[in-house]
């Protein structure tokens, strides 16, 4: 047996799994090779150190620090104005709300960038002298600003109508949707075999988006 083969069997030897000729060859090599014998001795020393770790009394201030950390955490939860979203709604409705807001922002941006006043094309075909050009440019800027303001106003009105509708819908269906979520979460939790903390996405009810 060479040193490499010896090393491959170290754990099997320490766990008492080597038998017969394998064990004989292993022990024979240990007698012949000082380095390998020392290796086994060092490993056994380390194992002994790990197995002999004493049971320590925690520092006296530890409980106080833990209570303090928990109190801060609790305060943080209460103090967050958006916390109700996290506590009451699972991930799908939250993502849907975020997508709606994003869509609104994109629509608004698109409107601002692409809508021009209708009379611009007429102005472009007017006189090409300097005065007309200055007039045209200043007129264009003012018109664009006014149009942009109107676009914003329109977008806000549209959004307000939309969110009022959403709010009414949630209010009319809130209790029903909430009980459906809770029922589903309960079922999921009962199925979980491990106490290990699960990600909330794993508990997401499949019918959620349909209900919403």
């Amino acid at each position: 047996m060479n040193c490499q083969a010896f090393e491959e069997q170290v754990t099997a030897y320490l766990d008492g799994e080597l038998r017969g000729s394998e064990l004989t060859r292993f022990e024979q090599h240990m007698k012949e090779c000082t380095l390998c014998a020392m290796l086994i001795e060092n490993i056994q020393e380390n194992i002994a150190i790990f197995q002999d770790i004493p049971d320590l009394a925690p520092p006296p201030h530890l409980a106080v620090k833990i209570m303090e950390a928990t109190r801060v955490s609790k305060k943080g939860l209460r103090g967050n104005p958006l916390e109700f979203l996290r506590l009451e709604f699972p991930l799908v409705p939250r993502l849907a709300a975020a997508a709606l807001v994003l869509l609104f922002m994109l629509t608004l941006g698109f409107n601002l960038l692409t809508q021009y006043p209708a009379d611009m094309t007429e102005l472009q075909q007017g006189d090409a002298d300097l005065v007309s050009l200055v007039d045209y440019n200043s007129n264009r800027l003012v018109t664009k600003a006014v149009q942009a303001y109107q676009n914003v106003e329109e977008s806000y009105e549209t959004a307000a109508t939309f969110f009022t509708g959403v709010k009414e819908f949630i209010e009319s269906n809130y209790e029903q949707v909430k009980s459906a979520f809770r029922g589903q979460e309960k079922k999921e939790e009962e199925k979980e075999p491990e106490p290990k903390e699960m990600n909330q996405t794993q508990n997401m009810p499949g019918h959620l988006s349909k209900s919403a």
Partner: peptide
């Protein structure tokens, strides 16, 4: 197995 061997060498 590797961890035991490597640790013994590092400690040494």
């Amino acid at each position: 197995n590797r961890a035991r061997i490597e640790l013994a060498r590092i400690v040494n």
